[in-house]
Design a binder for these strands. Structure first.
Length: 823
DNA sequence: ATCTCCCGCCATATG
DNA sequence: CATATGGCGGGAGAT
């Protein structure tokens, strides 16, 4: 068995050597020892990595990290040594840790520059890597797959990948965030949490079912991969529909962080969301376990990338493993930002500029190309056939798309065969604002104003109008979204399967877990009280900062605490809602749930270079593009693509597609986004349902008790930030409020039983900075504001003081959260 | 005991 | 058919 000794020794050596460069502190010098035969030891790689890293970034943070890592390494080494010394060969050395994916990933990453110069591309040959790193190929796939999901690498061919480094990261994250928002992940998270807690309290169970059915369902998520334009799709293989699960899972996992307010995601929650299952609690345990295993794999890689770090969330129940996002925050837009990181969800901006240019260039990419095409087409065919057979496929397009390089943009990615897709295209960019206006006009939303804060830049979505095309059925439908910051647009492909369910979600209404919820009444016993996030760690910790701050802010406010009212749920309503939604199931799966969460698609960002290709356009048109899109060319527009009718079940319209629009639209406005809705839905067929979104929203609100059962809020595709219109609700009745200021209002809800105990604050949408006007929130608030209905009575109150902190509307719901600690 | 998650069998996809 | 990819889950090391 063993012999790993050597390695250990070697590694140490390496370590030692390099250490000087990097960081002195960390390491205690260890004596080196035997010569290693192998150059590649994990450690060494690590070292390299570290050293490389340091130069570029040097902030304390990094330093810290480095040191940490180094220290870790050291520790490991020590251990090893000890062992060695102590006993000789114990097998253990190499111990599991040494073989961990995380370490392997570090080694892998050490081989390539974080930001490779655009001009020169680096290629990755799996055979070499496996050899050099001494690992089984299977492991490399795990790493590469995750990297692919972040567009840090893309596959060229069998055994070959191209290394992109972190250049695409900002865009990728932005795209993922957007999709995550569209997917209602926030709500899903809330649901899960609520469910859990209800469970605790009520052991009964039925209610859960309801919830589940209404919300959660999830069918599973389908897989859709989000792609970036220049980058990704290369080899057909990758694109291919098949194996993308790990990639998709990785993207979804990341999305969860990006949309969550605290940016902390527990494995349990992630697994549940990733599986569609939520409801069934009992759901296969095995499935759940498998998911968890995969998440650990992904988490290891993400941790190596320093995008997340492990923490523990302590709830009343106990402590659960979770991960905290430590990567760059993505802002939807804007620049104003100055906000601090803390606040909300969006934040900091690290990224900022993204080299769209590069992408363009990439898109162009020189290297290989044509083959792909061919392949693609064939692939596509396959896909189609497959689709028929099963829908599982993902599709993706394979992408040959390549957009013309020069143009970089555009859309239609799917050119070929698939043409059928309805794609929509859009171009985007700057003109957004305009577009928005247009939309408004159409929609008549009233309020654009609010929204508009217009900054075009800010909202990601903003954008434009979309066009929809009905396509008959293609397996995939691409959607293109504008990329806010970078200006890059993304295209999302939906799979048919996905499509079927729908997602209804209510945009405005996003509940987010309170970052720190806390709040008064928390039951948490103990003093611990509230959630606090403690991170402690041996060293530094910076981790906390954000959370902490936020917490602090939040906590203070005491709210009245729980108190009063209770929530009312109306199941019945829910049911009704569900019905509305109607969804059909396709074949097999039925999902009980009426709404599903979202399908995601493969996103491909298009760089925004401007002009699109006409050719593609033409294709689209063929497909049946909506008029709007055309416009797109000139102005940014988002295109939506409907899925194949057949596939579609209900509503499907992926919310996200719409998203951009939403921003501008008011809730009610379906009309506003006529295009979308109509075309999409209609085309799709069945979706007769008026607006799923709204129903969902209503349901949700009702469920939560924010609004009376009877009241319905028109929702609409508003998504993420929906700024505007809150009033839309008016349809039912209330209304008005203005958005803007709402910030003050806060809603508190109590749930009946719980009331005292758990309450959480959920900031809706998080405003990032208080100062900043975030339109979106406004909307949300409005919803809240909606007059309480009979049963529910949500009390809203504006806190005098609380206001600010909460800055935007906050919704309280029962929750419990407690602390986060690092390990 | 629980948390992590490595290992590698084996189905698929690709060549 | 031979490989390349990767889904998946047993079961063992780490705590």
């Amino acid at each position: 068995l063993k012999t790993p000794l050597k390695q250990a020794a070697t590694s140490q050596l390496v370590l030692t050597e390099r250490q000087p460069d990097c960081q002195p502190l960390t390491t205690p010098p260890k004596p080196k020892e035997s010569p290693p035969a192998d150059p590649w030891t994990p450690t060494s790689n690590l070292k390299m990595l570290i050293s490389a890293a340091s130069p570029e970034i040097r902030s304390r943070e990094q330093r810290r990290q480095l040191s940490d890592s180094s220290s870790e390494v050291l520790q490991t080494n020590h251990c090893l040594q000890a062992h060695l010394l102590g006993d000789e060969y114990e097998r253990s050395q190499p111990s599991r840790k040494e073989k961990s994916l995380g370490l392997l990933c570090h080694k892998f990453l050490a081989r390539y520059p974080e930001y490779p110069s655009p001009s020169q591309k680096s290629y990755i040959c799996l055979d070499e890597v496996t050899e050099e790193l001494h690992v089984e190929r299977r492991r490399i796939y795990d790493i590469v797959n995750v990297l692919e999901s972040l567009h840090m690498v893309s596959r060229l061919a069998r055994n070959r990948y191209v290394w992109h480094g972190r250049h695409n990261l900002p865009q990728t994250l932005q795209a993922l965030k957007k999709v995550g928002e569209e997917n209602k992940y926030i709500q899903q998270i809330q649901m899960i949490k609520r469910k859990e807690y209800e469970h605790e309290f009520d052991p009964d169970g039925e209610r859960n079912e309801e919830m589940a059915s209404s919300f959660g369902s999830s069918e599973q998520s389908e897989m859709s991969f989000v792609e970036l334009p220049g980058v990704e799709f290369r080899a057909a293989s990758v694109n291919g529909r098949k194996y993308k699960s790990l990639r998709v899972m990785s993207q979804k996992f990341v999305m969860l962080f990006l949309v969550s307010t605290p940016q902390i995601v527990s494995l349990e929650v992630a697994a549940k969301i990733l599986i569609g299952e939520d409801q069934l609690e009992d759901l296969d345990k095995s499935k759940f376990k498998t998911k968890i295993r995969r998440l650990y794999d992904i988490a290891n890689v993400l941790s190596s990338l320093k995008l997340i770090k492990k923490v523990h969330v302590t709830e009343e129940r106990g402590r659960k493993p979770a991960f905290k996002w430590t990567g760059p925050e993505v802002l939807p837009n804007t620049q104003d930002t100055k906000l601090e990181a803390t606040s909300t969800s969006c934040s900091p901006p690290i990224s900022e500029s993204i080299p769209s240019i590069e992408q363009c260039s990439k898109a162009l990419f020189p290297s290989k190309g044509k083959q792909n095409f061919t392949r693609h087409s064939s692939l596509i065919k396959l896909v189609k056939s497959i689709d028929n057979d099963r829908r599982k496929i993902q599709s993706a397009p394979t992408s040959p798309v390549k957009i013309s390089a020069s143009t970089c943009q555009s859309l239609p990615v799917f050119p070929n065969t698939v043409t059928q897709f309805p794609a929509i295209a859009k171009h985007q960019l700057e003109g957004q604002s305009k577009t928005a206006e247009e939309l408004q006009m159409k929609g008549d939303l009233s309020s654009p104003e609010a929204v508009p804060k217009p900054e075009p830049s800010q909202q990601p979505a903003l954008s434009q109008p979309l066009g929809v095309c009905p396509v008959s059925h293609s397996s995939v439908s691409p959607v293109i979204l504008p990329h806010p910051q970078s200006g890059v647009s993304y295209a999302i492909y939906l799979q048919p399967s996905q499509a079927h369910t729908v997602s209804t979600y209510s945009p405005g209404f996003m509940l987010q877990p309170p970052p720190c919820a806390n709040v008064t009444g928390i039951k948490s016993n103990n003093s611990k009280v509230l959630n606090k996030i403690a991170t402690e760690e041996g060293d530094t910790q910076r981790a906390t900062d954000e959370p902490t701050k936020s917490l602090a802010a939040e906590e203070k406010p005491d709210m009245k605490s729980e108190t009063s009212s209770q929530r009312c749920l109306k199941r019945s309503q829910a049911l009704q809602e569900n019905n509305l939604i109607k969804r059909r199931k396709n074949d097999e799966e039925s999902l009980d749930t009426s709404s599903t969460f979202f399908p995601s698609g493969y996103l491909i960002p298009l760089t925004h270079c401007t002009h699109g290709n006409k050719a593609e356009c033409s294709n689209k048109e063929k497909a049946g593009v909506c008029s709007l899109q055309h416009t797109a060319y000139s102005s940014p527009i988002t295109g939506v693509i409907p899925m194949p009718a057949s596939e579609l079940k209900t509503v499907n319209i992926p919310a996200f597609h719409i998203t951009p629009l939403n921003i501008m639209l008011s809730p009610n406005s379906i009309a506003a986004a006529p295009v979308l809705s109509n075309s999409c839905l209609n085309s799709s067929s069945t979706s007769s349902a008026p607006n799923p979104s709204s129903s969902a929203l209503n349901f949700m609100l009702q469920h939560i008790g924010l609004i009376p059962a009877g009241v319905q809020v028109p929702a609409n595709p508003v998504l993420q930030h929906v700024p505007v219109s809150s009033r839309s609700e008016n349809s039912s009745g209330s209304t008005n409020m203005q958005e803007g200021k709402v910030s003050k209002n806060i809603l508190q809800l109590d749930r009946g039983g719980l009331s005292g105990k758990y309450s959480a604050v959920i900031p809706l949408q998080q405003p990032s900075a208080p100062k900043e006007p975030q339109e979106p929130q406004a909307v949300t608030e409005n919803f809240f504001r909606t007059p309480g209905g009979p049963n529910t009575e949500p009390s809203l109150s504006a806190n005098s003081d609380g206001t600010q902190r909460i800055s935007q509307g906050t919704l309280y719901i029962p929750q419990r959260k407690l602390e986060v600690s690092e390990d």
